[in-house]
Design a protein around this nucleic acid. Structure first.
Lengths: 163, 163
DNA sequence: ACTGAAATTTCTTTCAC
DNA sequence: GTGAAAGAAATTTCAGT
């Protein structure tokens, strides 16, 4: 585990909120010079704490309005690698979480409509050793946008609800 | 739903992969001028397709090594707003998905260790009208990093497994 | 709509202290 | 850690295609 001080945490929080913040803006907010903030960000990347930057995209605006989680159960003999391989195969699958216990995996799916969802699930059921599925259809979602409670204390939670 | 052409999709994919790509780099990759790419990114932001930029952080490196999903069941009379309000209260809760059917919500939790997880779940059970929980402990995860299958065709899936 | 280019401003990077 | 200087990139604008 990596050693991180309070200022690093604030920098991470700022970059969580807006990954394109400039060094000068962050410098002002955390009370350090631009060079010092850059050095910290560089270090956080070298340490692997910051693994990259990405754009937040509203997929519903692009017509991918349906979101679901599907629990997958596999035949007892199925190795985890096989579970991940089959589940990641469908392009609609956004994330795969392998689970201790029952179910064996939870996958996050994004699709255009319910018909499309049906097709994706049917595809999964036909794949590999899937013995059962249970799908949770997402009605609304909220995501913590500011950095997690990085220090175990309540960081400000700014988020939004959709739909 | 928003009108988006192939080049816009490629720009989105590039920004999904790396939210700090420069206009000149993207211009080269999609075969347009810098000015044209900037105009497209500006438009995608105005349309609300790109909602922002954020840093990817490896929370395990910060000591938040345990991830779980918890299904929540609430008393029948509980309004959705109340579900979201109580579930988002704990700083360890990263995301809340309200669900059509049973369970009523699925929440994504990140904690330091199993003791901590126990505390968070106990807290939720004591809150509001929670009538039951089921927790799925995450052993490993894979996330699609490139932009989704934005056109319904299989976009290249570059991801990674953890743990 | 996009190109190419110029002018301006801002951000990044580096280095001496 | 700071401050300053140099280099790179972003932004803005515009005539031309």
């Amino acid at each position: 585990m990596v050693e991180i001080d309070d200022i690093d945490h604030r920098v991470l929080e700022l970059l969580r909120e807006d990954g394109r913040r400039t060094f000068s803006e962050m410098a002002e907010r955390v009370g350090l010079s631009v060079a010092a903030v850059k050095r910290r960000v560089d270090r956080l990347r070298e340490l692997g704490v910051i693994t990259g930057f990405t754009a937040r995209i509203d997929y519903a605006k692009l017509g991918w309005g349906i979101e679901a989680f599907t629990e997958l159960r596999y035949a007892g003999s199925t190795p985890v690698s096989e579970i991940v391989r089959t589940a990641t195969g469908a392009p609609e699958v956004q994330a795969v979480f392998t689970i201790a216990g029952d179910p064996d995996a939870l996958i996050h799916i994004r699709v255009r409509d319910l018909d499309h969802l049906q097709q994706v699930i049917d595809g999964l059921r036909r794949t590999g050793n899937v013995t059962g599925t249970k799908t949770l259809l997402v009605m609304g979602s909220w995501t913590r946008e500011a950095g997690v409670a990085l220090r175990g204390r309540s960081a400000e939670a700014r988020g939004r609800t959709r739909r």
